[in-house]
Design a protein around this nucleic acid. Structure first.
Lengths: 154, 154
DNA sequence: CTCTTAATGAAAAATTTTTTCAAAAAGAGT
DNA sequence: ACTCTTTTTGAAAAAATTTTTCATTAAGAG
């Protein structure tokens, strides 16, 4: 099911601003701020307003098509979300963003924390930051399936 | 070593605004925004400026005495940091924040991710959100050592 | 094609964060 | 304690970000 269908089924209309935001994020492959999305989006859709970018992001995030990226200094970046709960791996060199599944790998840690604190853990926020192969200067390896790059392959 | 010593050794002066920010965060035990810190801080130090709160937070964070808390909707909360790299467990009921060590528990996951993506992982951001014992309505359990509550025990 | 309702864009308002700069105060050395 | 140098402060202004308002436009169901 494509994003338009998902959006539509969730009761939202397929509009130009929303389409543009999706296009832009698709092509970027790394987190973009509302400002950046707006700037790039205008190339496709001249009259695009910044407000609409904010509104589109809010809707798309709610539907799970877009994800906010949290970095130590700024938290205004958005990337395309692959379906399901994924985590984010961010290259500090080029900003390239990869999502990966693996909530399972956290279950041990979570169980441990629950035992020791008495908390009931309901949700988590996990992001990894590092260097991608090109930025490390090493040769690129094949990327196995299930590990999708957010956005277009370069 | 207390925080004043740590700050001092890092080359910073012990000033009233910095002291007030530490006091306020100590007493709160849950994330506070600069605004909130400012409001509470004025009770101790009438002339405290909001700007100084921002500046104090920047310095204290850099020295590792204070940590920023990332939540889905807002990322402007700060808590006292216990020494070392800890993770944050946040109660969505009362906001109570507990830090826990456990970078080790992530090493498996990180190794896995590195193998599959070719990235070299350098840092991570992990936060858990859940319900603390009081907010779940259950009896409070003892909190083992090494699991410190940020701020004052209630 | 029409009609209803959601969504848009522009402007204004509200918030949040940063910059600037003269005055105050930390703290090292008398 | 007192002096001196340098950092730090607080206020105001500026910049940047996000939200609200509202008349107009355009989705998409019928």
């Amino acid at each position: 099911m494509n994003w338009e269908e998902r959006l539509s089924r969730a009761g939202w209309r397929i509009t130009m601003p929303r389409r543009v935001v999706m296009w832009v994020l698709q092509q970027a492959g790394h987190p973009l701020s509302p400002q950046e999305i707006h700037a790039r989006g205008r190339r496709f859709h001249r009259s695009l307003g910044l407000v609409s970018v904010y509104r589109a992001l809010a809707v798309l995030e709610q539907v799970g098509l877009v994800r906010r990226v949290h970095r130590e200094d700024r938290c205004d970046g958005y990337i395309l979300a692959s379906p399901g709960h994924h985590h984010i791996l961010l290259c500090r060199g080029c900003g390239r963003t990869v999502e990966f599944p693996g909530a399972e790998d956290l279950s041990g840690l979570i169980a441990h924390v629950e035992r020791r604190t008495g908390f009931r853990v309901e949700d988590h926020l996990l992001q990894l930051v590092g260097l991608c192969p090109p930025c490390r200067g090493s040769r690129l390896r094949s990327r196995p399936s299930g590990w999708e790059t957010t956005g277009q392959e370069k």
